[in-house]
C-alpha cells in the first residue's frame, strides 16, 4: 500500500502537506490548533520541477532500503508492506534519510518523521482525503486501476 501522486493533476496547492501535518503529533486534524499553537511537521512534501509538481511521499518500497539500514530496528515493514517508524526507538541517526532514493524521510529532533499512511485515522490518509483534485490515490500492492 502506498499513496501515488499524479503530477498531471497536482495543483501544487500544498493542502496535502498541511493536512498531513495537522493529522499527526496529536493535533487530530485540527489545522488551526496545529498551526497556531503547535509546531506542525508534515510527513511528505511537494516537489516542484519545471511546470510540474507532485507529492513526494513514502513509496513503502518492497525490500525497503530504509528498513534495511535502520540501526535501531525502529523502522519496520509490517504486513501489506507498510513501513512504519517506532518513534520511541528511533535515535535520529538519519541513516534512513541517507539511503532513501526519494528523499522522503524528514529529520526530526527525537525521531525522524515519515509517512505512516495515517494508520490511526479512519478512512483514507489525510493527504488523499485533502487533495482537491484527485491527484493522490491510495493504491494496494499490485493494483493498477
Amino acid at each position: 500500500m502506498k499513496v501515488v501522486s499524479y503530477s498531471e493533476y497536482c495543483l501544487g496547492c500544498g493542502l496535502c502537506r498541511i493536512h498531513c501535518a495537522a493529522g499527526h503529533d496529536g493535533y487530530n486534524g485540527n489545522i488551526l490548533k496545529a498551526y497556531k499553537r503547535g509546531t506542525p511537521r508534515p510527513r511528505a512534501d511537494l516537489i516542484f520541477h519545471q511546470d510540474q509538481s507532485w507529492l513526494n511521499t513514502c513509496q513503502h518500497c518492497p525490500d525497503a532500503p530504509c528498513v534495511n539500514a535502520c540501526i535501531t530496528g525502529a523502522l519496520q515493514q509490517y504486513d501489506r508492506g507498510v513501513v512504519y517508524i517506532d518513534e520511541e526507538i528511533c535515535v535520529s541517526c538519519y541513516t534512513c534519510i541517507m539511503v532513501c532514493p526519494y528523499g522522503h524521510i524528514f529529520p526530526g529532533e527525537q525521531a525522524v518523521l515519515k509517512c505512516d499512511l495515517c494508520r490511526e485515522r479512519p478512512g483514507q490518509p489525510a493527504c488523499v482525503a485533502a487533495c482537491p483534485n484527485g491527484a493522490l490515490r491510495l493504491v494496494n500492492e499490485g493494483e493498477t486501476a
Binding site: 501515488v4 501522486s5 499524479y6 493533476y9 512534501d45 516537489i47 516542484f48 520541477h49 519545471q50 513526494n56 513509496q59 532514493p101 526519494y102 528523499g103 493504491v139 493494483e143 493498477t144 486501476a145
Partner: peptide
C-alpha cells in the same frame, strides 16, 4: 534541494510510479 535535482533523476525514479499509473 530536492526541487533542484536533475530532471532525469526524477524521471528514472518516477518510472516505478508510472508503471502503476492509470489513465483517466
Amino acid at each position: 534541494g530536492l526541487n533542484r535535482l536533475p530532471p532525469m533523476y526524477w524521471e528514472a525514479i518516477k518510472e516505478v510510479a508510472d508503471n502503476d499509473s492509470y489513465r483517466c
